[in-house]
Nucleic acid binder design. Structure first.
Lengths: 337, 337
DNA sequence: TTGAAAGCGCTAACAG
DNA sequence: CTGTTAGCGCTTTCAA
């Protein structure tokens, strides 16, 4: 067992209360007792036990983070942003992944709540129908959604405008002369974002007077729909000129599969993604994408959460924060002049 | 404040000790008292407070993780593996990044120790000269290094054999007919792995009777050495046929810069990386690389750590675990027949 | 400026 | 099978 405040007090010849004061309000301790205590602390290698402190204080200066997976760079970057901002504000981060399983969302949050985190940052499958969020609401634990754009105006969230960003991406394809644009999406029931992006796709197609095509939903664990691609490309008149994918990983997987079928990107078919993962910009050709600022999303989410923790029940500041997206042009999209 | 074991006891008409027993050894409680207690728990929405439990028990079932950054997929995957394995063993994960700053390593570990984590998994700049590890040793906190291969035989670690893997990568280039192979590395003082991989490069060159070329050390934050590339390629007789990069991110950045200079990969110059990030396999051409099993490294590290926690001071099992690497062949490397 | 004392939530003896 | 009690490390009144 590491030394406690008690041993420090003993060693320094003061009471535990005084040691505690030095730790928390140094100016309230005379400089010579401070000296003695600091000596004792150094000699013993004392380090305050946050468990004791938290128990007493009823707060932990720790936030919980729940993301679907770290295999998708987007969430890794977001977590990176969270951790960075947390450290700057002297908060610690407890981290969990759900692998897109909704039951794991609940379990993760329960665990975090048992640790008595002061708040939670999470990305859920469906923000509008999430028992997990209801639990958080009921318990009055502050939380901030990332990537999700909840219907309920009461829920704090940080994201891009998924629908608008998808619209802009598809509009970009249309502006470049594409008319037969098909969307490839992750499973709708695992991602409300995918649905919103699909609406953005529909918006853009309709606004241009183009006929939307049937969406292809890709299984999460395989990340492939090779059979669909084959069928899709078989009939020249059915063949889309461009594929708009609901995320970059999907876009990359699709490109790989299409190439395996002997097709060239963008000569035979164009591909556009969503997320704007950094690696997309290092590839050749560059992956066109609707870029969201993931690290910043994490950073803003953390700051919003800490603000919410500070105010307890009181509300202040914007509830649903929409960060700007950009459209990354890239060689994966062919230009019809 | 959420309900405590006390309110549950009151509501159920039993003592707090009995509630605690139900929580920890359910079979030691009669089934009808169990019923009453469970009712009370459900009614109150009780959730045990781990701070109280940890304080009492002197352990937290929480491990700390310190990685350089999540911007490199390798560490994100590793963390993913850690979290997954931790969850399976009912451990929680507290996470920190250092951005490759050594002073942040120490700060991160101090914070984790204040939280009284039961052990730490970390990747440090230099495992052989790390004050941070000395602290851990002194305090007797179990820890496991990932990616680092420490000199000290006493330190638990999980990694590939960096030197051998680099050797194999370079030997692969040589087997394909390359003779003028140059190495590109991250800064040696920020990564002992980079040094080990450099030795592997030297091993392979010497074994083949080839003259090693001067290494190019790339700045971490820019990830580029465009000026060096220009100079390097200027003189046809100085020009390497292949670049071996100490990690995949570097390889990708180099390819981007080389292309910007009007050079083609692999026609004008071949590129091979290290890490085997998943995206390398989705690109076209596929990025050749020495592949390390990052997620597995995390998983094994966590299990090793938990075993070490279990045994306290006693030792058992292998100390330095070397996982198998593989060589991924890829189109970024030209074949001289 | 300092100390004594109480209590945050929980568990582990020890009795019964 | 269950209750009583003490104490983990810390902070915070309240007095001095």
């Amino acid at each position: 067992m590491p030394p406690s405040i008690k041993q420090v007090a003993l060693q320094a010849g003061v009471s535990t209360a005084t040691v505690s004061r030095l730790l928390n309000k140094p100016e309230s301790v005379s400089s010579d007792t401070a000296g003695k205590i600091n000596e004792a602390i150094a000699a013993l290698g004392f380090r305050p036990n946050f468990n004791g402190r938290n128990l007493r204080a009823g707060r932990s200066r720790t936030v919980g983070v729940v993301v679907p997976t770290l295999s998708n760079t987007v969430f890794a970057q977001c977590l990176q942003g969270i951790e960075l901002a947390a450290r700057a504000l002297d908060y610690s981060v407890m981290f969990t992944a759900t692998e897109y399983r909704q039951e794991d969302e609940a379990a993760a949050v329960n665990l975090l709540l048992s640790h008595r985190v002061d708040g939670v940052i999470l990305t859920v499958a469906d923000a509008s129908a999430s028992g997990t969020l209801d639990v958080l609401d009921r318990e009055g634990i502050p939380y901030v959604l990332t990537y999700n754009q909840p219907q309920q105006a009461s829920r704090l969230s940080v994201s891009v405008d998924n629908r608008a960003a998808a619209h802009d991406a598809v509009a970009h394809l249309i502006a470049l002369g594409h008319t037969r644009i098909r969307m490839l999406a992750g499973q709708f029931n695992a991602s409300d974002r995918a649905i919103q992006r699909y609406h953005g796709y529909l918006d853009a197609m309709r606004a241009a007077g183009l006929a939307p095509m049937a969406v292809i939903e890709v299984e999460r664990h395989t990340l492939t729909a090779a059979a669909d691609y084959q069928q899709m490309m078989a009939d020249p008149r059915q063949r889309p000129t461009a594929l708009f994918c609901s995320n970059d990983l999907l876009a990359l997987a699709a490109m790989r599969d299409l190439r395996a079928l002997g097709l060239r990107v963008p000569e035979d078919i164009s591909v556009m993604g969503f997320d704007g993962i950094p690696l997309g910009e290092m590839m050749s050709p560059v992956l066109a994408s609707a870029v969201q600022p993931s690290e910043q999303i994490g950073e803003v989410a953390l700051r919003t959460l800490v603000a919410a923790i500070g105010q307890a029940e009181g509300s202040a500041g914007p509830v649903s924060q929409t960060l700007a997206h950009t459209i990354r042009h890239g060689g994966t999209v062919r230009v019809f002049s």
